[in-house]
Nucleic acid binder design. Sequence first.
RNA 1: GCGGUCGUAGCUCAGUGGAUAGAGCAUCUGUCUUCGGAACAGAGGGCCGGGGGUUCGAAUCCCUCCGACCGCACCA
Length: 586
Amino acid sequence: MITDQLSVLLRQAVDSAVKDGELTVGDEPIVITFDTPKNKDFGDFATNVAMLLQKRAGLAPREIANRIIKRLPVGQSLITRVEIAGPGFMNFYLNPVWLYDTMVSIEREDTAYGNGNSRSGERTLIEFVSANPTGPISVVNGRAAALGDCLANLLSAAGAVVEREFYINDALNSTQINLMGISLQLRYLQTLGHTLDMGDSSTDEEEESTPHACAKCGENHIFPKEGYRGEYLVEIAEQMAKEDNGALAALPATDQAAKFRQLASDRMILQQQSDLAAFGVKFDKWFYESSLYEKGEVSTAIELMKSKGYAYEKDGALWLKTTELSKDDQDRVLVRSNDKETYISADAAYHKNKFDRGFNRLINIWGADHHGYVQRLKAGVSSLGYDQDKCEIILTQMILLMRDGEPVRGSKRAGDIIPLVDLVNEIGRDAARYYCLLNSYETTATFDLELAKRQSSDNPVFYAQYAHARAASLLAQAISRGVEIKAAADIDLTLLTDERELGLLRKLSDFPSEVKLAGDFLAPHRLTGYIREVGQALHQFYEECPTLKEGVDPAVRDARIALFNVTRIVVRNLLALLGVSAPDKM
RNA sequence: GCGGUCGUAGCUCAGUGGAUAGAGCAUCUGUCUUCGGAACAGAGGGCCGGGGGUUCGAAUCCCUCCGACCGCACCA
């Protein structure tokens, strides 16, 4: 990156000033950063090091800048001039040759342009979505899915080895799974003609009304108050009853419960897998919580906690000292007084498993409603002897869909959530993914379904894709007119001198650092902002600089065609990072 | 009550302690004998929730108040 070169030159200048006794900077390392000023008059790049050194040097920032600039290779190949501005900024004006070099690198690196190696050696596991197998994937899960997938792309682009994982909470200890099994079982009996008493989930009063005895078998089939009431279970039950002719109902009660529990979770996992596949998110591994129990990893983890003195008995249960290990406000139960482990035990064991597989960075994406659980997991990680800072938790806020100014409500069919597949079917996969990444995950995003479907400029997805289509289509147009598309390296690129051409090139040259920063800050939404800027710069160039029109000098034409080509490459790479398609035509 | 997150243009949101706080949408005004108008150019619109502090400099860091949302299980 060009700023790396500038940093080296600047550091040499500072060192030289120190050596000559013109600057004292102390022992602390000097952090040099360059950013691109918003105002073009402030040069190509600016740095604030002179102001940061003010205290250490005991000099006015402008004077410090002065002494540094004297030692910079100004007027030679790269830097044409450096100005001191405002309180002490150093504004660098560069020879545009570096932009032409960038064009050649973009073509040479092609799909790899934008990638770096700042994270080589990192092995990162991103765990995301991990929805309980009790219902379809919701739009909130979708936000996490798009985010996790994009983060994985970003960290890979920075050189890390990244795996995507979905954790399936399918443990037999799980109250939720048991409820799910019971709910399915009752729906199944209902389709066979048994009388089902749904109770009333909306009131808090305890059930005292007389149960309706089943006309068929005389028993009382009462639907649990906390049961899963979504109608998707009715559909599954009907299908099952049709397939097996009601054979399951003949099983003994305990076998029946276990069977339904298993079937319910198997069905839901398949459903979730297909929901996510439709969204274009693929996981490297679906990790079963139950496997931790089967392999004894949960009890191993608990024994380890005990041996390290972080677990203690109280009230017949086993507790973890989470308050001591992290910032939790009370200790948490590991093993209930009925001898069943809680999810904390399993989760601690799961994260030990992750570390033991060789990952040195763990990222978990959870819904914001789980924030109270962050400290518990960190305590669990610490208690097993791992660095809790290596386990980062990202909390995503809700997503609110609006239609005609009214919030979209969860459907009864889906159990009061909005299924992700419904969103994908309505606005398409690309738009759905793009909107999930449009805002920072820290804010509750609201977005308008009508806008997302609109195929016009006010829709950011189309603006982004249109940039690619326009560039691709110009290249296709050139070919159909018999104009050869030459490699940037074989063209006189110095003919690109218009402010629009240089502006676009500058934008494209930002791409590697934009990718790096989006990864460093775990902030994919930076890219959706950046892609709009690239699109805008392309359209400005397109409007003002004719390429295939009559009367354009062939040498200029070739240089501009090359500019379209490198823009196409950058936009395509950007869309790939976001997981959105890059159409040649729209 | 305790804890967490967040208050930025009419709306939806960006904003690494730095220069005059930005963008999209919406509103208004322009640009088409067009290489894709799904575009471009321009205008209006702000005590960055209030008040203190930290410093050369605060939307950004600290304290406090107000408001919104979320969490506070031997559920996950």
